[in-house]
């Protein structure tokens, strides 16, 4: 399972904003933390803004603020603003389409897709922040992130 960089950035930015709900964060601040380019992150924030999940506050001290419901917005809600996860039906033109082998392969892939969607669709941003805090409190959890967690996955 691998998400597109935009989806990863969107989830990380949302979590950052939810965890810092009392202040605005700039694209540069979020980008610096996750090793993402401001240009790419700005595009991501624009999509999140259109979806009503963040609002931009202009002027000195401005930045982005979370404007959704962290207990109702799931990771799937965020990710599907950027990419489609799993086919809803059999892909037209897929190899083996119409054959019993193709149908069997489709059934297996569907099973995987269903699990992925169920997992991402059941974890809200609030739950994810809680998970993150629990991980931080575990004695063996790494205390600092690598400087560029995203560029490594590009």
């Amino acid at each position: 399972m691998k998400l597109q960089v935009s989806s990863q950035l969107a989830v990380l930015a949302m979590v950052e904003l939810v965890a810092n709900a009392d202040r605005q964060l700039t694209v540069a601040e979020i980008g610096a933390k996750y090793g993402a380019s401001s240009h790419h992150l700005a595009k991501v924030m624009h999509v999140l803004g259109d979806a009503g999940l963040v609002r931009a506050i202009r002027g000195a001290g401005g930045g982005y603020q979370f404007s959704g419901n962290a207990r109702r917005t799931t990771l799937l809600d965020v990710i599907e603003l950027f990419e489609r996860l799993g086919p809803s039906g059999q892909d037209v033109g897929a190899a083996g389409e119409g054959t019993s082998e193709g149908l069997a392969l489709h059934a297996v892939l569907r099973e995987i897709d269903d699990t992925v969607r169920a997992t991402l669709g059941s974890i809200t941003l609030a739950t994810f922040c809680g998970l993150m805090k629990r991980r931080q409190n575990e004695p063996s959890a790494p205390r600092s992130r690598p400087s560029s967690v995203l560029t490594a996955n590009r």
């Binding site: 699990t115 669709g121 059941s122 974890i123 809200t124 809680g130 998970l131 629990r134």
Partner: peptide, 18 residues
């Protein structure tokens, strides 16, 4: 049930994972 979103979200929020 995978598609039963409400209990899934509840148990996740309580820290339960796969």
């Amino acid at each position: 049930a995978k598609l039963n979103a409400l209990p899934m979200m509840f148990f996740r929020a309580e820290g339960m994972m796969a």
